[in-house]
């Protein structure tokens, strides 16, 4: 007789036993249907692997070092910040320490954040291919679509973690090294401390959303190869190309379609009242990139011969 779960922890057994396990799948399966179809267990395992890796923590620590560096430099230097010089919002830091987080995001968004997201997204499928674990996941069977979804979800989780790795340590260091007072916004209005925490979270949310399209691009490129370094590098190169094109006025018609176009648009969130225009535009653009590249990744991966 089989245990209630229908899977005794031993291999073998008469072929008749398996028919019972088929029934088990039909009945007890309902209990776990929700979690299993979405792959929450696999997602949990994926997140554990991702955030259990030393590489992930090295990247998050490097990101956290950016605002810390900024705060220390500003604090130690005797020269007062000159408005309009240095990274945006740098001059706000001395008014409200929380703005160290915002300044950190400003500094990290052009290269540092996309770099780390490219590493994670570019590694997603290609990394498994390179290790050879892809074939074992697929014969488990993980299901190709399910695996793609889990990989994308993990990449999104990393986008959140990466943004927070800049914003949270930035805010903490800022609070320690600088006064936390009312701060003047770009529109000239002054907001209190509570509101500035909210604005910081809003900016962090905006930056996270900004990286989602890139994560989808990286996921797609990752399905093209078994060499993770290749897909990571290609994703980073695309980021740079997108930013370079965005800086060339000759191709201004293309600018609204570039995934990096709204990356600096979060300044609108620091006005009173909040100008949601760029937030919405950014969200739609990123959603479009996700739809397009998720479809491409599916088209590629669903029928790909896994020979790694």
């Amino acid at each position: 007789m089989l245990p209630s779960d229908g899977r005794p922890p031993s291999s073998g057994g008469a072929p008749g036993d398996r028919r019972v396990s088929g029934d088990r799948r039909a009945t007890a399966g309902w209990a776990t249907l929700g979690s299993n179809l979405v792959g929450s267990e696999l997602l949990g395992s994926e997140l554990k692997v991702l955030f259990g890796r030393r590489r992930t923590w090295a990247m998050l620590l490097a990101l956290a070092a950016v605002p810390v560096l900024i705060a220390v430099v500003v604090r130690v230097s005797s020269a007062p910040g000159t408005p309009g010089r240095g990274p945006a919002f740098l001059d706000r830091v001395t008014q409200n320490g929380l703005f160290v987080g915002v300044t950190g995001l400003v500094v990290s968004i052009p290269l540092f954040l996309p770099l780390t997201v490219s590493v994670v997204a570019g590694d997603s499928i290609a990394g498994e291919g390179g290790l050879g674990t892809l074939r074992y996941l697929l014969v488990a069977p993980a299901g190709r679509v399910r695996l793609l979804l889990v990989k994308f979800a993990a990449a999104l989780a990393f986008c959140v973690a990466a943004t927070l790795a800049v914003a949270v340590p930035g805010a903490i260091v800022g609070v320690v090294l600088f006064p936390v007072g009312p701060v003047t916004l770009l529109s000239g209005d002054t907001i209190d401390v509570g509101a500035s925490v909210l604005r910081l979270l809003l900016v962090a949310g905006y930056v996270t959303v900004s990286l989602v399209g890139l994560a989808a691009v990286g996921l797609f490129i990752s399905t093209l190869t078994d060499v993770p370094v290749g897909s990571m590098a290609a994703t980073i190169v695309l980021t740079v190309v997108s930013e370079v094109l965005d800086a060339l006025p000759q191709v201004s018609w293309l600018h609204p379609w570039l995934f990096s176009h709204y990356w600096f648009g979060f300044a609108d969130l620091l006005r009173q009242p909040v100008a949601w225009g760029s937030f919405g535009g950014n969200a739609w653009l990123q959603a479009g990139y996700v739809a397009l590249f998720a479809a491409l990744a599916y088209g590629r991966f669903a029928s790909k011969d896994v020979l790694s």
Partner: peptide
Amino acid sequence: RLDTADRDAPSRTRAAR
């Protein structure tokens, strides 16, 4: 890790298996 990829593998008996 590889066992979680199998949707039919119950998590309750995973450690034992």
